[in-house]
C-alpha cells in the first residue's frame, strides 16, 4: 500500500515536471460570455481544441486568454472554435445555431447573474 501511495506522489511530480511549455503564443479574445456557466463551457470546450495549452476566461472583462502551440493551430481557428461554442470572438459573430442551443441565461441579452 505504501508503495502505491509513493508511486502516486511520484507520478504527480513527474506529470507536473512535464508541463514545461514548448514554443507557444498567447491570444486574447473578447467574447460574449455572461456568467460562470459560460466560463466553464468555454474553458472546457476550448481545452479540447487542437494545440491549446491553457485557457482562461476573465468574466469581468469577458476576455478569453488562450496559450497555444504555434505549429498546431492559428488565431483564426481558435476564434472560429469560440463562435462554434456559441459566443462572439472579437469581430467574429457567434454561430447562430450554437448560440441558440445555449441555456437562456447564457444567451446574448441575458442579464448578468
Amino acid at each position: 500500500m505504501i508503495f502505491t501511495v509513493v508511486l502516486f506522489f511520484f507520478a504527480v511530480f513527474q506529470l507536473n515536471a512535464q508541463e514545461k511549455e514548448t514554443k507557444v503564443d498567447t491570444i486574447s479574445i473578447k467574447t460574449s460570455a455572461i456568467c460562470n456557466d459560460c466560463k466553464e463551457r468555454l474553458e472546457h470546450d476550448m481545452a479540447f481544441e487542437k494545440g491549446v495549452k491553457s485557457v482562461e476566461l476573465d468574466l469581468d472583462t469577458k476576455v478569453l486568454t488562450i496559450t497555444y502551440k504555434e505549429n498546431k493551430t492559428t488565431e483564426e481557428k481558435l476564434k472560429t472554435a469560440v463562435t462554434k461554442i456559441g459566443y462572439d470572438a472579437d469581430e467574429m459573430v457567434a454561430d447562430q445555431k450554437a448560440h441558440d442551443r445555449l441555456p437562456a441565461c447564457c444567451q446574448k441579452g441575458a442579464e448578468p447573474h
Binding site: M1, T4, V5, F8, F9, A11, V12, L15, E19, H44, A47, F48, V52, K53, S54, V55
Partner: peptide
Amino acid sequence: LLSASYQTNLKKWQFDLNV
C-alpha cells in the same frame, strides 16, 4: 484519512487516491 488528487492542466486527466 489521506486523500490526494491531481488534475492535469486543462482538466483532461484526473487521478485520485484515498487511504
